[in-house]
Design a protein around this nucleic acid. Sequence first.
DNA 1: CGAAACTTTGAGTCGGATCAAAGTCTGTGG
DNA 2: CCACAGACTTTGATCCGACTCAAAGTTTCG
Lengths: 233, 233
Amino acid sequence: MPGSALLKPLTAEQARAVLNLHGPQLRSSKDAQLIRARDPASPLLTLISGWAFRYSLLPNGKRQILSLALPGDTIGLDTLLTGAPVYPVQSATAVVYCVMRQDQACELLREADWFREQALNALARDRIQAEAALTRIGQCTAEERVAAVLLDLYKDLSKRGLAASNTFPLELTQQHLADWLGLTVVHLNRVLGRFKSRRLISMDRNQITLLDPAALACLSFAPVPSEPTAVRG
Amino acid sequence: MPGSALLKPLTAEQARAVLNLHGPQLRSSKDAQLIRARDPASPLLTLISGWAFRYSLLPNGKRQILSLALPGDTIGLDTLLTGAPVYPVQSATAVVYCVMRQDQACELLREADWFREQALNALARDRIQAEAALTRIGQCTAEERVAAVLLDLYKDLSKRGLAASNTFPLELTQQHLADWLGLTVVHLNRVLGRFKSRRLISMDRNQITLLDPAALACLSFAPVPSEPTAVRG
DNA sequence: CGAAACTTTGAGTCGGATCAAAGTCTGTGG
DNA sequence: CCACAGACTTTGATCCGACTCAAAGTTTCG
């Protein structure tokens, strides 16, 4: 689900090189503005711990969360390449992160093949995420969206060793989730309540446990490509 | 709005090089499957004339149109870079296009700096489009979505010299538009009807005329980044 | 301990979906 | 050139998922 994991498939040596180019580790508290909209020369940002998210605000005050960043994710590649619309990034928890100045990132992009390749991959992954989200929001009911997102989050956090035995920490408020899924908090809350009473999930603190992943998966029928021939139901 | 215009910012010479690498021009009739889901080694495809679209199908038969391709656009860059999910592409009109074999594209990507750079830019643009669509569908009402898309289409077609004096050809059925906007045909049709009776647009054949672009713009308040500080309405 | 933020629940409303059927356009073959 | 079939658009009636408004719990944290 979340943003681009720039650092994963690098050699240890390359990862070190990237981290060296980053500035020192920075800390921010919860709900801090890590990158503001229209920030000129906004830097490349790599999350070390904590959760953050990128979002867009509409003039009417509504917010759409565009992507999550989990520990290890890098934010701002798109900006680097296009300059165009810089979406603001906010922390959802206290975070530790480091940044690479835009000019440095650009240089690396110009000079280091492996970095460029990583950037391309990360960017493409991002777009795939965005399009999955588009399909979810455009075509799925609230229950389907919630089920899909819970499963995705679990899968993603597992991969990073941040979840186990069907349980994971959800470091987002329901407001965040709602803005991510294109629902209202109230309705999201009711859907979660329904899932709880149907014994599909349980929630304790911010820990989510998937009691019946199979049933959730069935509910969510992932927005995968699917049949090439069919026309419509 | 639409997909990646790979060929625009190239020198004439480079454009020729790309076109040379493409196979000969191909033609397809309306509603043809240009690329099928899970196509192995699906090629890079450049539209010369006509309209096409990329979409995803859900198991329940619902369809989400992910992006449009207008004349000049290139489809399949993401696939090239990730291999992962190949979304099917269909023509909405009779089309003329040419294709570049995946291995050739990969080679060019490896060897030609300018091509790689173009690919990066195109990819980033695509993601921006996807995220704009996400915000539209997630946070806007039906009227807002329709207004936004009509304006965007006009702007985009104008840039390509395919529209003028607030009029442009809409080579999509209402079903296409609905699947793009995450609405039902019936509801989309009512919104269009409302716009017509309010003298915001007129439709003749498949020609759309924006009678009052300012009012439409006001309705659509583009999903631009916007204020860095505000929290919510 | 108290204030603020977040979650939960209730009641009522509405935008958009669904179902159904009547027009209209398009293209095709006779 | 007309007639007809199939696809697309338009309209009506009805329904329901999700939103709104409102208020009561609950957590969090200073």
